[in-house]
């Protein structure tokens, strides 16, 4: 395993993805200490300054330091994505395990519900959910979780179906293992890797949802910095102060790019089909 990891990291794209994601995570975790200025501190007399020594990404329409805001936004956006995806796993795992392991009517009912949720384009569903709960951080997290959960539940179910009838599981069952023990000791460890890969890739979709909601004004409320709402509130400056849009835009692109590279790498790491490749 460790050898394989080392080998993968030698592939530049994958190492790059991992590094990029690490940079974002560090920025998010250490944001309060990394920002050169208070991201909410306004200096109206210094509004709309182009990038300079003092403000290396310039200042926004209210004279706030853009670099500080992009970094502060990383904390918000990443937190929402991470918590949202974890919540999705918490919702989807029992559903998927139950549906896959018990089967029959339970399976049909659970999967009908998740299919119904899947028929909505995820952004539409997210907008509906946020409208229901009211705009704000908590609603966006819930929206991310609920839009990610159905697909995840389906994936877990199919992995369980593949795994639950493998010979060693049958063997364990024959030895008298109960369903709880079967799931915990034999099924979960075998599917965990692939679930992790999938949730990683889901992170980039979740980020798009979060920033889209922010852009639509349904996400984190101003003055809190968030990439989506930074884009939304400054888009009239596209012609006059393009750096206002470039910074959060690049931040979103970089994160998704990095996460996709990393997700691919992880898939290769966990994919059993690749297990025997040189």
């Amino acid at each position: 395993m460790r050898r394989r990891l080392r080998r993968l990291l030698r592939v530049p794209a994958m190492a790059g993805g991992a590094a990029l994601v690490a940079v974002y995570l560090t920025a998010g975790l250490l944001a309060p200490w990394l920002v050169p200025y208070d991201p909410d501190e306004q200096d109206l007399m210094a509004a709309l300054q182009p990038p300079s020594r003092a403000h290396w990404l310039g200042t926004d329409d209210l004279g706030r330091d853009l670099a500080s805001r992009v970094i502060a936004a990383a904390r918000v956006d990443l937190a929402v994505v991470v918590v949202g995806i974890l919540l999705a796993v918490v919702i989807a795992a029992p559903v998927g395990l139950l549906a896959g392991f018990v089967g029959g009517r339970t399976d049909r009912v659970l999967m009908t519900v998740s299919d119904a949720a899947l028929t909505f384009p995820s952004l539409v569903l997210a907008v509906v959910l946020v409208s229901l709960f009211g705009a704000g951080l908590r609603s966006v997290i819930v929206a991310v979780a609920l839009t990610a959960a159905p697909a995840l539940a389906r994936l877990i179910r199919s992995l369980v179906l593949q795994t639950a009838h493998l010979e060693y599981v049958d063997a364990a069952r024959a030895l008298g293992a109960g369903p709880g023990r079967l799931i915990a000791r034999h099924v979960v460890p075998n599917i965990a890797g692939r679930v992790i890969v999938y949730t990683t890739l889901m992170g980039s979709y979740a980020m798009l949802t979060v920033t889209a909601l922010g852009f639509l004004g349904l996400g984190v409320q101003p003055p809190a910095a968030e990439w989506g709402n930074m884009l939304a509130t400054t888009r009239t400056y596209l012609a006059t102060a393009p750096w206002l849009l470039a910074a959060p835009g690049a931040a979103i692109i970089g994160f998704i790019f990095g996460l996709n590279l990393l997700g691919d790498a992880l898939r290769d790491l966990f994919d059993p089909k690749l297990l025997w490749r040189p």
């Binding site: 909410d40 501190e41 306004q42 004004g217 409320q221 101003p222 003055p223």
Partner: peptide
């Protein structure tokens, strides 16, 4: 509207009033 509201919120912060913004359609 939203820009002015943020500026106002900041002026209030200076005098020690904590304001949260509720923006609506």
């Amino acid at each position: 509207d939203i820009e002015v509201t943020q500026a106002f919120q900041n002026f209030l912060r200076v005098i020690g009033v904590r304001a949260t913004i509720n923006r609506v359609e």
